[in-house]
């Protein structure tokens, strides 16, 4: 019904708008975007905007009874069990979260894309082998595997990033596998084959460009998963090790005291939630804008 009528007119094309413009028209995406910018700003400028050194165990950072200081006054968000300024630790913790979010997720995305697209396009024994391997990885309880790996290697920032990448590529691989198989069956790919195009040309000129929006979307959503996984590992004590501040290990260090000093859980917890939420909001909006199969869902 939507097809235009009559003697073959040129269908008036909607003026192509930038992805960013369309993104910025969504209030939720804007909120997410702002949160991300704020976090990146905090991470980059932490040395200048943090009121104290995050590792300083300050003499006046504890009450006379040795308890942490509540929020307000000199220490805006209070202090932790060792008398360190919580705000400063959270600001520096943003660096940990973002570095891991970008590095681990970048690596996971790369592995997932290569495996998913190869398996989806070539099928046959290669595709079957790759997908059986993916099934095997699916059967591992991801967090348990990550804990094992993190316990094996002495956890450092980079090791934690790699561990997260190893358990996190599976989802991307599965999604891109499905998408690639359905793309490979599309008629325009068959048409390319009848023109005599080879695998390399079809893969890079016709399949990958169609996958880019999806890769961007999953890349963005994946950062959120990664941030949560890092926080969880650090909370369990097998992630980023103190004294390097991470939002997860701040809670890990202080949870024994959380009944009397709930802000030590609340503030870093809120930071994790907001950053993960921000990437989820932006990723979801990107999906609506970029992914034609999802268009018109909202």
């Amino acid at each position: 019904m939507a097809d235009t009528a009559g003697p073959e007119p040129i269908v008036a094309s909607a003026r192509p708008e930038g992805t960013l413009t369309r993104l910025m028209r969504r209030p939720l995406a804007v909120i997410g975007f702002v949160l991300i910018v704020v976090t990146v700003g905090a991470a980059v400028f932490a040395p200048w905007i943090a009121p104290f050194n995050p590792d300083d165990q300050m003499f006046d950072g504890l009450t006379l009874q040795g308890a942490p200081m509540p929020p307000g006054g000199k220490f805006l968000l209070g202090t932790d069990l060792l008398g360190r300024d919580l705000l400063s630790r959270i600001l520096f913790g943003a660096r940990t979260s973002l570095i891991i979010g970008l590095v681990a997720n970048g690596a996971a995305l790369t592995i997932g894309t290569v495996i998913g697209v190869t398996a989806g396009y070539f099928r046959g024994w290669l595709g079957a082998a790759l997908m059986r391997f993916t099934d095997l990885m699916m059967a591992f309880p991801a967090l348990l595997l990550a804990i094992c790996l993190a316990a094996i290697f002495q956890p450092s920032l980079w090791i934690v990033a790699m561990v997260i990448a190893i358990v996190n590529w599976v989802q991307t691989a599965r999604v891109l596998y499905t998408e690639t198989t359905s793309l490979a069956e599309r008629e325009f790919i068959a048409a390319e084959k009848t023109l005599g195009a080879g695998h390399i040309r079809i893969l890079f000129r016709h399949i990958l460009p169609h996958l880019v929006p999806m890769i961007i979307v999953w890349g963005t959503l994946g950062i959120s998963t990664t941030v949560l996984l890092e926080a969880t590992l650090s909370y369990l004590g097998v992630g980023v090790q103190p004294p390097t501040p991470s939002w997860g290990n701040i809670i890990f260090e202080n949870q024994t005291y959380f009944q009397s000093a709930p802000w030590l859980v609340f503030f870093p917890g809120a930071a994790i939630l907001l950053l993960a939420l921000a990437f989820n909001l932006v990723g979801d909006a990107l999906r609506d804008v970029l992914d034609p199969t999802q268009r018109g869902r909202d």
Partner: peptide, 8 residues
């Protein structure tokens, strides 16, 4: 819900 860390 999907952004909240379970331990928090």
């Amino acid at each position: 819900g999907v952004s909240a860390p379970q331990f928090v």
